[in-house]
Design a protein around this nucleic acid. Structure first.
Lengths: 111, 111
DNA sequence: TTGACATTTGCCTATATAGGCATATGATCC
DNA sequence: GGATCATATGCCTATATAGGCAAATGTCAA
């Protein structure tokens, strides 16, 4: 079996740094494709492909505007990711010190 | 260029559902490999491979115990993911209603 | 040492990518 | 219609998986 498609869910979609960058950029408001490409320093087809993935998982919407296409952020699909990771908050918080020394000790022992 | 390695960072590592399941399971405490395989209904080599990925991104640690290997959760690497998605909280929260109707309208127009 | 058990690693296949380039599709205006 | 601009898609290559199975490695006990 191969890896799940990038369009399978938000977890897979946001694994790509450029796609995260696009989402972050769209916080500032809707943007046209060529804009995004300029800001990111990527060529346009590459951006279009990332946008397609983001659209398929519902993280962005499109809004035709003349010959341009304006993309906007729809962050709702990120909530599951935030929620899931949030379920681990207590684990990286409280026991951090104890865990840290523990792991460090282990690592030393392994060498 | 191909997709980034699953071991590139936590974003990529947790894109796989089985790996998320393992992490969730480890919330309950350290577990031995065969335990995990049993609970998850997977064969043991598959689990070992997932554990390797999780270990490489630092999400779990190992703790040899006789002929077994006890794996434990180290959730700290999840914090960046939680943090990054958290930066979108206001976007899926406040403007949700407005965005929802907007997107719905758009979708209707596209058909 | 040998055997038994636990875990990891190697090998294999099917499947997907990310991005570069060229090209198709769409939309606007003359 | 034809020219022009904006975007999307197709084709290509290199790379990497997830998981099944077989075999290697590691650990202990007698």
């Amino acid at each position: 079996m191969a890896r799940a498609r990038t369009t399978a869910d938000a977890f897979n979609a946001i694994a790509e740094p450029h796609r995260r960058e696009i989402l972050t950029l769209l916080k500032g408001g809707e943007r046209v494709v060529s804009d995004i490409a300029d800001v990111m320093g990527m060529n346009q087809p590459a951006v279009s492909k990332h946008l397609r993935v983001l659209r398929e998982v519902g993280l962005v919407y499109v809004h035709p505007e003349g010959k341009q296409r304006r993309y906007g952020l729809d962050a709702r699909a990120l909530e599951p990711v935030h929620g899931w990771t949030g379920g681990f908050e207590e684990y990286w918080g409280e026991s951090l010190e104890r865990l840290n020394t523990y792991v460090k000790k282990r690592q030393r022992e392994e060498e």
